[in-house]
Design a protein around this nucleic acid. Structure first.
Lengths: 348, 348
DNA sequence: ACGCCTAATGATAGCGCAAACATTTACCAT
DNA sequence: ATGGTAAATGTTTGCGCTATCATTAGGCGT
């Protein structure tokens, strides 16, 4: 009666199929989905029934192609294993989800070359904005991002000359401040343990070293680094190595992250080194473990979730709001002095 | 000379633009990118130069629409904060990347309704396959996945009737085995601490309880659960609660994950409860911390990275290989007995 | 009654690409 | 020379959707 049935099964339903079932034009179906205020309630109902009965799911590729809007935000992080990025991602996802954006996430493995490849992949999806990590991109990568002409947020660190927008904090200053605080607690011989040594880790180290130099407390041989990725196990190994090269002279160690610091703490316990009696320890990132381990671990707290939220919001402001929004946000950090470092009062 | 220049700037270059510059047809450019073996070296070079000079990046939406191939794998996990999924994701990403697939990742927040919404979002991107977590989907979600007619892997647990493919392990059996092992070490009064209580956590609990029941060691009041998400802090709180309701009679606790177990361990230390002297603890998931903390924490090790790799490989086998591949993989687990539980020999 | 506005709906075209089919060229066996 | 084949390249078409521009119907002031 109502004309021949089309591809009733096996093939995904299209707008046209829905339109036919609802006996309206295709564009009306499109409007029901994208501009429901422009369609009468009557038709809206009819179309919705057709959609439900067919199990219609819009083809986003066709939509993107026709409308030049993808509702995708590309995100590049250097590591999926480093749980630091979990919190950031959660912030990004929360804001993106709430605003109808999808996140396309790639892992650059801390390599600018891989990042370039991944950014190319992301751009081929026509994202409406990008969130990338740090400022250490290849020139080709910069060029791609520029000619993409979309909002770009560089996150995790504050950059002198961001490509576009920027949210993060100064790792250099954080490292500097840690050195100052450790010295304030009465520690005299400070060492540094770092792994992976990406640019942000290096900045922490440079800030730390700078503070020591300014106070004549810098000993190059008390800096131990490795390109290996951080781990708790590695923290233990590096502690041993530093203890042996320093012949036990060191009384405080700044570990470039909490993995290493926890590893150092656990290893100290096994070596019967008292923390903070014999040795003070300070980590970075402030994992939940750090606050609860015994002795609790001093660390640098960074509002990672807020950083992710901020990155996503900056983008949405640009995409939707349009007007003069923030281009650079220093999200700050806080040094949490806990039991692994001496309490103040016994010094100065 | 060579005709009018087109949109030289500001607009993204297209295949046609590249074709014009290289003085070939559009399809040749397409072939250089997708079937380079079908183009002469001469043209390949000319086209590549044009691509480079224009900074051409293919429009994946158009490609997907025209070819009905998206090279996207949709992945739904219940939580971005739970680091258990990091390792799984890493496995998925490693395999996907290596084979030219992109991953579109969504977070369902442990809610089947949200999962349904997210799966709809994923399907609208025309993924070529899906990896979802567990078997607790809504009927509508199942229907969508079925009519999508793409490979689907349900991961993290072994299901009786998977939708399609399945990789995981038996949480029930793992919980059961933990109870048996704890009893074998001489513990008599076993408690359970659980948070979030998603289906997999419940299965662990049920297996644990079953083993106790069979041995007349089950005390319902020694099971403490909460729908709150797990955390180290919560582990401490739940320990206190269990200790007080049991008046200290309990001599071993199985925590549904290592967050809770570490929290319980740290809190025990603060309460001056000797582990394992006064109280044995066993966690689940085997975080790196668990192996290094003092005393080291017994836990159930799960090959999460391998699970992610396997999930992705099962999909690739179907997408590319085509022939009879594995439909169900039990990835197994291993109970790691460490210092937080009594060593064998003093019992049985 | 007339023009004029707005709201609701439809027809058409085209987004950028690749599948399918067509054409050209080169080379070879006979 | 002839037909036959394979390799290299081109032409056409349409994927599913939405922007744009009609068109129609209804309301309203004069």
């Amino acid at each position: 009666m109502a004309g021949r049935t089309r591809k009733s099964s096996s093939k995904r339903a299209t707008l046209a199929d829905v339109a036919q079932v609802a006996n309206v034009s295709a564009i009306t179906v499109s409007r029901v989905l994208n501009h429901p205020d422009k369609v009468s309630d009557d038709l809206k109902r009819r179309v919705q029934e057709a959609i439900d009965s067919l199990g219609y799911i819009p083809n986003q590729s066709a939509s993107s192609l026709a409308s030049a809007r993808s509702r995708v935000i590309g995100v590049a992080i250097p590591s999926l294993s480093n749980i630091v990025f979990n919190d950031v991602l959660r912030g990004i996802y929360d804001v993106a989800d709430a605003n109808g954006y999808k996140v396309l996430l790639v892992d650059t493995h801390y390599s600018p070359l891989e990042e370039e490849k991944m950014v190319r992949t992301l751009l081929s999806q026509s994202p409406e904005a990008m969130i990338i990590t740090g400022g250490d991109q290849t020139r080709a990568c910069h060029r791609m991002l520029e000619s993409a002409a979309i909002p770009v947020v560089q996150m995790m660190e504050i950059l002198d000359k961001p490509l576009d927008m920027n949210v993060g904090f100064s790792h250099y200053q954080a490292g500097y401040d840690v050195a100052v605080r450790l010295l304030q607690t009465g520690c005299k011989s400070l060492g540094f343990v770092g792994a992976r040594m990406d640019t942000r880790t290096q900045q922490r180290m440079h800030g730390f070293v700078k503070a020591l130099e300014e106070r004549n407390a810098y000993k190059p041989e008390w800096i131990v680094t490795t390109p290996e990725p951080s781990s708790i196990a590695l923290g233990g190994e590096l502690l041993r190595s530093l203890i042996s090269t320093s012949s036990g002279a060191i009384d405080a160690i700044f570990c470039c992250n909490d993995d290493l610091a926890l590893g150092a703490l656990f290893e100290s316990q096994r070596m019967n080194i008292k923390v903070p009696g014999d040795l003070s320890l300070c980590g970075f990132n402030d994992f939940e473990t750090s606050a609860f381990v015994n002795p609790s671990l001093s660390s640098v707290h960074v509002p990672r979730y807020e950083m992710g939220v901020t990155a996503a919001q900056m983008i949405l402001d640009r995409l939707e709001g349009g007007n003069d929004s923030r281009n650079k946000v220093d999200i700050g950090y806080e040094i949490m002095m806990r039991q692994s470092t001496p309490s103040l009062g016994s010094s100065n």
